[in-house]
Every structure is written in C-alpha cells, then in structure tokens.
C-alpha cells in the first residue's frame, strides 16, 4: 500500500490525518449494533478545517507532533517511561494546534441502558513492538489517575485502577464525553484497539471494537533515520 501522505518523514496510511482541534471517539447505536465512530467536532483533517463530521474510528490518523514530547517526571511507570525519559502526550486540556481527543457516549440515551458504557483497552501495536500506550486523567491537585496501560502489570486484569471496576484497563463513561491524556512512549505509528461495552434494556449486552491510529512524530534529528525505515511503518488499512 502506498501512503498518500507523509508526515515529517513518517509513512502513514491512506487514512485521513487529523492534526488539530477537537475529536471525540464515541459510541453510537446503529440499528441494533453498537459502533465506534470518530466525531470531528471542530478540527483540521488533511489540512482542511472540518466541523461536525462523523467518520469511522479507524479512518483517521491522529497526529502527535514533535512538540508534544516531554520528559516524564517520577510516577509514570504505567506509561512505560522512567523519570526523564521521553513521552508524547495529547493533552486533556485544549491547546491551540493540538488534537484534543475525548472518549464519548453522549449520543446514547441513558434511559435505554441498564449499565453505563465501559471503554476497555484491547490489543496495542507499538512501533517497536515494546512501546507503551497509556491513558489517564490529571488530578485537580496534580498526580495522575491511569485508566489504560498496554504494558504495566499493575493495570492487568485483577488489579484496580481506582474507578471501582474489576477490570483496571477500563474507563467508565456515564453518557457524557470526557477529555483525557493520551500517552505514547516512542515515536512512530500506533494501532490501539478500543472496546466499548454496555447492556441495553432490550438488546442486552452489546460490544463495539475498532482500532484507533496515532502517528507520533519524532524530533527532526531522528526523522531521517526513521524515514529509512519508512516502509516498515506502513500499516495495513483496516
């Protein structure tokens, strides 16, 4: 597959590139099926300002630019990085020119459901195969409440993540939409499987799953090296 776009030397798929603005990954009820979708609230897709467009969740490459690289403080083990190591973050708070990504279940009618909607983390493919994808909320007075970690043993099944649910790699969505921090431990192309579950009053237990695509851009000095391996970064379009 030949990439249609190149972002800072990284090969990407023929998916459209979401580079800034508000984007919600949310669940909708389509007929009797629960589905995941990407809702471009107000953002830039392939360089074009786009407002209120809904597209398949796996049809976008969400861009994480080089300026989103930070040195991790202590306490980021769940994000797969030690103190001082690099982590790339899409922030929970809106910043100009940066994707502002939420998880949403607001398009469902709460009264039709006997449970809240739970987002869970499925399989994660990192650029090197050993990277860590993570998702967390920042506490009001600092600190982090990690909900997803693709590698941290403390967040494996059987542990808890503080949200009163037995599955630690989950996130409860009470028919609203919540912005969170999205963390990547290395540059490159990421595939993150997201699973949404809930019990409908008449349709019973429903599940939706899809793959979210993120492209994390390294600093310019490392772009050249990665470009050499560009073909290796190409992914199969789902």
């Amino acid at each position: 597959m030949i990439p249609l776009l190149t972002v800072a030397g990284l090969g990407v798929t023929n998916a459209a590139v979401f580079s800034s603005g508000e984007l919600d990954f949310g669940v909708i009820l389509e007929g009797n099926e629960l589905e995941l979708e990407a809702h471009v609230v107000n953002g830039v897709v392939d360089g074009v300002t786009t407002i209120d467009e809904e597209v398949p969740a796996n049809s976008l490459d969400v861009l994480v630019t080089a300026d989103r690289e930070f040195a991790a403080p202590a306490g980021f083990g769940a994000a797969g990085v030690a103190t001082g190591e690099s982590i790339w973050i899409l922030p929970q708070s809106e910043a100009v020119g940066v994707p502002f990504v939420a998880l949403a279940s607001e398009e469902l009618t709460s009264g039709d459901w006997s449970t809240v909607i739970t987002f869970s983390l499925g399989s994660v493919t990192s650029p090197s195969g050993t990277g860590t994808f993570s998702m967390w909320e920042a506490g009001s007075l600092g600190g982090q409440d990690f909900h997803f970690s693709s590698t941290d043993g403390a967040l494996t099944i059987g542990a808890t993540d503080g949200d009163a649910n037995t599955n630690p790699n989950d996130y409860i969505s009470n028919f609203g939409h919540n912005h969170v921090n999205w963390g990547f431990s290395e540059p490159g192309v990421w595939e993150v499987e997201l699973i949404a579950t809930g019990t409908h009053n008449t349709l019973g237990a429903l599940e939706a799953r899809d793959t979210l695509n993120f492209v994390v851009v390294p600093e310019p000095s490392s772009v050249a090296l990665l470009s050499l391996a560009g073909l290796g970064l190409l992914r199969r379009r789902r």
Binding site: I89, P91, G143
Partner: peptide
C-alpha cells in the same frame, strides 16, 4: 487552573 498531563498546575 488546569492540571497538565504531567501534573503541573
């Protein structure tokens, strides 16, 4: 205030 992703207020 905002709490940033790395915990800074």
């Amino acid at each position: 205030w905002t709490t940033a992703g790395l915990g800074r207020l």
